[in-house]
Design a protein around this nucleic acid. Sequence first.
DNA 1: CTGAAAGCGCTTACAG
DNA 2: CTGAAAGCGCTTACAG
Lengths: 357, 357
Amino acid sequence: MGRPAPRSGRRPATILDVARRASVSPATVSRVLNRRPHVRPEVRAAVERAVAALGFRPNPVARSLVGGGSRTLGLIVADITNPFYAETAKAIVETARGRGYMVVLCNTDNLPRLQAEQIRMLREQRVEGIILGSVHRRDPAAEELVASRFPCVMYNRRLASQAGTFVVLDNVRGAEEVTRHFIELAHRRIAFLAGPPSFSTAAERLTGYRRALAHAGIPFDRRLVRQGQFKAELAYQAARELLQQRPRPTAIVAGNDLTALAVLDAAAHLGVRVPEDVGVSGFDDIELAGSERIQLTTVGQQKAEMGRLAVNYLLELVEARDGLRRDPIHHVLPPTLVVRRSCGAMAGARVRRAATL
Amino acid sequence: MGRPAPRSGRRPATILDVARRASVSPATVSRVLNRRPHVRPEVRAAVERAVAALGFRPNPVARSLVGGGSRTLGLIVADITNPFYAETAKAIVETARGRGYMVVLCNTDNLPRLQAEQIRMLREQRVEGIILGSVHRRDPAAEELVASRFPCVMYNRRLASQAGTFVVLDNVRGAEEVTRHFIELAHRRIAFLAGPPSFSTAAERLTGYRRALAHAGIPFDRRLVRQGQFKAELAYQAARELLQQRPRPTAIVAGNDLTALAVLDAAAHLGVRVPEDVGVSGFDDIELAGSERIQLTTVGQQKAEMGRLAVNYLLELVEARDGLRRDPIHHVLPPTLVVRRSCGAMAGARVRRAATL
DNA sequence: CTGAAAGCGCTTACAG
DNA sequence: CTGAAAGCGCTTACAG
């Protein structure tokens, strides 16, 4: 009588099965499973034997219901087909797996409404923390998330308020360095293909560009700044306009590699040679930037490292059992100027060297 | 006395709160929530009012524990930084969201051990179904998953046994068409940069290549086939070897776009002109294949459609309440030959046209 | 049509 | 050190 005998079939073992086999209570099994102290070694061993014999694996859903943690994180990016996000996402997923967490992927296309909805869904699904790859500078949903003290970290972009933990590139310096690089190559009419000013990345890169001009005493000319929106199609149009200006800019600093590629396309279609007629630079150093046909000068960032840091900071928050939650961390990574052919420095070097001989 | 009054604070409303406010039982609330019949309209309305007033959202974890479904799917790909996977993943995530499901992303780097581990973890997390983007032709973990009748669908690649539901490209035809295209351009020494033969995609593309040669009466020459492993670095080496053969192949059919780009690089480094000295083609039609600097002739596949189909077939399985589970579906999508500059057809056409005048 | 009760598989105080 | 009991928030037979 009483409960039916356990079906010998496919039903996965539960903690009760383990308890019975080891002749202990489920509470004790739970203690062993969670490596808690206060269990006699021989009891612990018996439980472990039972676990092994039954091939028992705790049901994460039950654990999560009772507050034990779902071992799942959320990752929200703007566009997973953007190589920058794909590369960081890969590092994030792999780092999380190494720590025993899975990650739910969400794609927002930069739509605030979608991002707010995804944050809500992720919290309902009881993910233990959220990584935000594409917050806006003002971003009510993200700000509320941070304020609620729910474990989260931003990467790539940050809030204007500087609230919360984030790991970002030093975008100001990156843009400043690449712009100065063109200045050192004797450029004066340097255009800037900007990203949407609602993103910290775009705003900071524009700042860096202006700063480099200012340092060199080159007046800022707003006609040389065009919106590329970080998107290939829009950037293509903007690049055409820039390239048709007279006098034509002698260099174009693009907001990211995707838009820099659009500049290359626009130049090709207009018969403008790169780098002879116009120098071009990007931002991100995606894998294709180094290919022989592209050879894009760009600002590199440590994408895998950024992803790893984001996960590690997040898990610190997740695992900090409430009390000892420390101050938000602002981790700013250094940029690397990657000089390839598209800026003209290579050719120039060769020419100069030849002249010296 | 009895249970403490609900803390007015942040505790999210539960089904019990709703039941109390609507003066019904939790069972009735559950019925309304799940749109089950047999609820008087006025009761239903009262419950709905209570739900709205409390901002109640059912806890998916509890639902999932009791067998109600976690509303989560798993997606396992070989490499999310490969644009093919990024593009299909995007469609998958968005289609799933439209149907109210989230998706857990896993990356295997094509390691069978990792894939087996991820499948296990996903099942433990109680995802309701799994999409496999990178099965091997023999793949014990995937075969077992299919055999267990757990809802799953493969895309891109399939099992040699043809077991399970899948949506794939007609790879044989794709490779056959692009090879024939070169033959029609009068090529005879056509090399093939293969993928790992343990993948159906690679095996089928090789078959298509051989079939086109056979149809044209061109003898198969195994020295013209090299392993590119679908990876840029390995393909680069293999491409160098091919390009240094004497006589040099006049065309190279690459197993995918990533390896075709490696061929372009190798050619550039060796001073071999594309398409004048060697024609090149890829497979996948990733976004960059169309850029002005690349202009890669390739075999296009409907990536977004493939992702959408995978989700829809999977949800059919998930939602087919056991009984009416129908036969596995084998959906084979047609390839599209995308002719750009790298094959030489453009230049050739122009030349021929000029000659005619 | 509706409710009381049991149960999903764990964990966490509370006793001892 | 260990166990009995309650509970996490739902859903599902079973009664009525």
